[in-house]
Design a binder for these strands. Structure first.
Length: 354
DNA sequence: AAGACGGGGTG
DNA sequence: CACCCAGTCTT
């Protein structure tokens, strides 16, 4: 029970030590320059599963291009995906795009400060909901991510497996009890900063921790063993040949991926599944699949690309075609300059080479 | 509850 | 190469 866990935990002293440290040491980040809920929202979506240093340049470009919910709502999806190119988890961008359109349609362009309404927006789950409510609207709502679970698992010596959904629920209950009612915005951001700079996953800097005297893990020397997290399963490799098919005009054959699933709506060079097709049969397979005649050229290296759940093992080939137009609606012929305006996943940016 | 869904950083 | 990470959606 939460009451038992918080026995002998000095909530007020903890809050005071944490917030004092935060006000003197908080990181200056682009999304902390105002409390504009839209900027907080965009930052929180970008920060899902992504490091601060990676996000900063994307956030700046994104806010310059789409300063308001209206500008983002009116943008073409392909353009939004282009802004997201390289960040990964592209459904975040597509969901955010859909969600700002919901805000414009249903809330007159004002981001709702009510929990249920906010949480109903596409891509806004329990964490983001709590982050926006606390950071932008100063409501005492927990915003529990892996970072927060790490900090509190150590502070309160909790050894539940943080990979389990019920454990996250548990931490939400704990944070709801502990969170500052005076300044929930600073409280949640302080925990995040603490987790990012001091209470780090490996070799935490306990000796300079502002809340060291509240930490039960440090008291018993268990900080390195927490949090407990079950291992992810190993990824399965999939073997492909990626074809850089060029015609006499110097245009390349590129393909738009399906609107659902992996890398939805992103562009790529056509990929031949080598588990089903022998190298010698590629032209025949390509004709049957896409209706385009190609001549396989020379090998142009290889690429291994690791995703969370699978690995692409790709042989890259140059190829030629006489085609100057294509019928298959997945395909199009594009010049290098045209390709640069379209969203490609990192793997195919590498294959492209420019 | 488990799997799908990207990419970069670290030791 | 193994492991880590500012989650959400679907099944």
């Amino acid at each position: 029970m939460v009451e038992d866990i918080l026995q002998n935990f000095n909530i007020k002293a903890f809050e005071s030590d944490l917030l004092t440290w935060y006000h003197e040491n908080k990181r200056m980040l682009p999304w902390r320059e105002s409390r504009d809920p839209y900027r907080i929202w965009v930052s929180e979506i970008m920060l899902q599963q992504t490091k601060v240093d990676t996000v900063i340049p994307y956030f700046k470009r994104f806010m310059e291009k789409y300063p308001t919910v209206y500008s983002l709502a009116e943008a073409p999806e392909e353009e939004v995906l282009k802004e997201w190119e390289g960040l990964g988890y592209y459904s975040r961008a597509r969901n955010l795009h859909t969600a700002v359109q919901e805000v414009v349609e249903n809330y007159g362009g004002t981001i709702p400060d009510e929990k249920k309404e906010l949480g109903s927006l596409k891509g806004v789950g329990p964490y983001t909901q709590g982050a926006i409510l606390s950071i932008a609207f100063n409501q005492p709502e927990p915003a529990v991510d892996g970072n927060v679970m790490r900090v509190f698992s150590r502070l309160l010596l909790i050894n539940d497996d943080i990979a389990r959904p019920r454990t996250k629920k548990h931490f939400e209950t704990v944070v709801r009890e502990v969170i500052s009612k005076e300044d929930p915005s600073s409280f949640n951001q302080a925990i995040m900063d603490l987790g990012a700079t001091i209470c780090t996953p490996k070799s935490p800097a306990c000796l300079v921790c502002p809340v060291l005297e509240h930490c039960r893990a440090f008291e018993v020397g268990a900080q390195a063993e927490l949090p407990v997290k079950s291992k992810a399963k190993k990824q399965k490799p999939i073997f492909y040949a990626a074809l850089k098919v060029k015609n006499a005009d110097g245009n390349y054959l590129i393909e738009k991926r399906p609107e659902t699933g992996l890398l939805a709506n992103m562009y790529q060079f056509p990929m031949v599944p080598l588990s089903e097709v022998a190298l010698i049969d590629i032209p025949k397979w390509f004709k049957k699949e896409y209706g385009v005649d190609v001549m396989l050229g020379k090998r142009d290296g290889d690429l291994k690309h690791v995703f969370s759940h699978l690995i692409w093992d790709i042989e890259i080939y140059e190829a030629e075609t006489d085609a100057i137009e294509v019928a298959d609606n997945r395909l199009r012929l594009a010049s290098p300059d045209e390709m640069k305006k379209l969203p490609f996943p990192v793997s195919h940016l590498r294959i492209r080479g420019f």
